[in-house]
Design a binder for these strands. Structure first.
Length: 581
DNA sequence: AGGTTCCGGGG
DNA sequence: GTGTACGGAACCT
């Protein structure tokens, strides 16, 4: 099956991982696979191993195991401490950290389902194979979803999911008194569009329009929407700002009207979680993607309204009605059809954007190895971090802890000096030549072995020494981050080769998105060194990278000028010049 | 200069 | 949920 989502539940006080997938080769059947075999754990770094084991024994923990790992490259003996339940970790970890014989604890802040994905080396949005499963004889009568018990190994096959069912939705509200208030203002339309050509607006009016599904009242409107989602079971359900508007609004209206909205594959309700300043709304099984945060990351615009984003992506205007007057379009018979068309246009536009943008996010999901639900809401720095957490497991490296509040406040505000910029010379320049470095920063990280684990004060070892700052980076062994970027770039080269050898346009398109995702990830790696919430934060690394960057571009400009070129503009990794002979 | 508040998207 | 996280612009003092 294709792995769409993952979580865990507690059964008989024991955590059970749930893998939500679709059997794409078997009639697209939805499946929930239960795995009861996985347990949470953390690491303790002891000051004295024997003493530490003795002290830990007294806490009556599930299981202790001594392991040899590396801590920023340094061989380190750690104790792997297993727990019965993920919620035991926050309860007990402080007591472990406070033991006299414990120097530090690690990997105590990795959510259980993420740990599972990493340790089993499985990846969402890829085909998942089970070596042993026990099938339930029939799908659940109430939810129509089949449950299987995992009894053996689980593994990703490496083949990505294609042909996913994407459905978009969008609500319209009658709000005559300012912004919509779910305590007061009713939902009058819900637009739905799927990639099987399904386009529809559910409403209590509009029976003369062929794309409208008419219902009795608002409660039925909500239940009809639920019925469509449950019945069609899209792999991905997309909205625009649906985390903070549509879903919370629908949920509140459903509660007021007593409508049933059990959209989850297990019959569970939609759940809106407060995450700091923003919300995230989850449906068990179906991946809900809010395109708004995705688009903010993907393009650089002054505004990110649906209209603006659509216009930028497709070069076409979509129907736009004044938000504060939509209620009039609903109330006045002669205007109502326009509101219906607007509603349909919104949901179709959302769907088109999803079709265009999701392939890249699906590839990022596979690369980072965390659920699409999470990836679509993560800043790129977070994506890079979780990619590294997975790599750290593969390399036997201990993951640094998340920065504490005091680390964070110490770090924030410090910024590395950026790239070299020569302000453009005013005027119209003719016969311009252009030069730029290909992936300058990733190349510098690799060639100068810039990594927190290679940074050293040791004057003896052979080092690359950063210009301006004099930071020293050991030449060998290869650092953690340079190794990882090396892997990314060589995979990208391999995919580009494969692209050259393919004449199937569909395959080339897929490969092109894959190399694009790799490029983005490689380019993110520089920025995160200076990102104050990054586990592998290192201002020295960030400063060294840009220092070498400035050094290279300036030297290149100087050489060009010796050959008779005149630079009219330069920025970070490239410059423009005229030739004067 | 340095701190604090506001705002995004949605109707 | 191995919880509780943004970041830039505008506006103060």
């Amino acid at each position: 099956m294709v792995l769409l989502d993952i979580d865990y539940v507690t059964v008989d006080e024991v955590p059970v991982i749930r893998l939500f997938g679709k059997d794409k080769s078997g009639g697209n059947e939805p499946i929930i696979a239960h795995d009861r075999s996985f347990r949470p754990y953390i690491y303790a770094i002891p000051t004295d191993l024997d003493e530490c084991l003795r002290e830990l024994e007294e806490l009556e923990l599930e299981k202790l195991e001594v392991k040899e790992m590396r801590d920023l490259g340094r061989p380190t003996e750690v104790i792997r401490i297993e727990f019965r339940h993920p919620q035991d970790v926050p309860k007990i970890r402080d007591r472990i950290r406070d033991l006299k014989s414990v120097r530090d604890i690690r990997e105590h802040d990795i959510p259980f389902y993420r740990r599972y994905l990493i340790d089993k080396s499985i990846v969402p949005m890829e085909e998942l194979e089970f070596q042993g499963v026990e099938m339930d004889s029939a799908p659940s009568v109430t939810t129509n979803v089949r449950t299987v018990e995992v009894t053996g190994r689980v593994q990703s096959t490496g083949s990505g999911a294609h042909g996913l069912d994407i459905m978009s939705f969008d609500i319209e509200v009658r709000n005559p008194h300012g912004m919509p208030d779910p305590e007061r203002d009713e939902i009058v339309m819900i637009g739905v569009a799927g990639n099987m050509g399904y386009e529809s607006v559910i409403s209590t009016a509009g029976d003369h329009l062929d794309f409208v599904e008419v219902v009795e009242d608002e409660r039925e409107l909500l239940e009809k929407f639920a019925e469509i989602v449950i019945d069609k079971k899209p792999d991905i359900l997309v909205g625009y700002n649906s985390d903070n508007f549509d879903f919370p609004y629908i949920t509140r209206r459903a509660a007021i009207l007593g409508a049933e909205l059990d959209l989850g594959w297990d019959g569970s309700k939609i759940r809106t979680m407060r995450r700091g300043f923003a919300n995230a709304t989850a449906i068990k099984g179906t991946v809900h993607v809010d395109l708004y945060p995705v688009m903010r990351r993907y393009m650089n615009l002054d505004r990110y309204t649906l209209e603006r984003v659509y216009q930028e992506l497709f070069g076409e205007e979509k129907i736009d009605l004044p938000g504060d007057r939509l209620w009039e379009y609903w109330d006045r018979d002669e205007l109502r059809d326009e509101l219906f068309r607007y509603s349909l246009d919104d949901v179709v536009a959302t769907h088109r954007i999803a079709e265009k943008i999701l392939p890249l996010n699906l590839e990022l999901t596979r690369l980072v190895g965390q659920p699409l639900f999470d990836i679509s809401r993560m800043a790129t720095g977070q994506q890079a971090e979780w990619f590294l957490v997975r790599k750290a497991y593969q390399y036997g490296e201990l993951v640094p802890n998340k920065p504490s509040q005091s680390d964070f406040s110490r770090r924030r505000g410090r910024r590395a000096v950026g790239g070299y910029v020569k302000e453009p010379e005013r005027g119209l320049h003719e016969n311009i030549v252009q030069f730029d470095f290909r992936s300058l920063y990733p190349s510098i990280i690799i060639s100068k072995n810039i990594s927190p684990d290679t940074l050293t004060d040791d004057e003896e070892s052979e080092c690359y020494v950063a210009p301006e700052y004099g930071y020293r980076f050991r030449k060998s062994p290869r650092g953690f981050v340079p190794s990882v970027i090396g892997e990314i770039l060589s995979e990208r080269v391999r995919i580009k080769e494969e692209m050259k050898g393919s004449d199937d346009p569909m395959e080339r398109k897929i490969l092109n998105v894959q190399q694009e995702a790799l490029k983005r990830l490689a380019n993110t790696m520089y920025g995160v060194y200076g990102y104050s919430r990054f586990r592998w934060y290192s201002m020295e690394c960030a400063e060294a990278i840009t220092a070498w960057g400035r050094d290279y571009i300036k030297k290149t400009i100087k050489t060009a000028e010796e050959f008779g070129f005149h630079t009219v503009y330069a920025d970070t990794d490239g410059f423009y010049a005229t030739y004067r002979g």
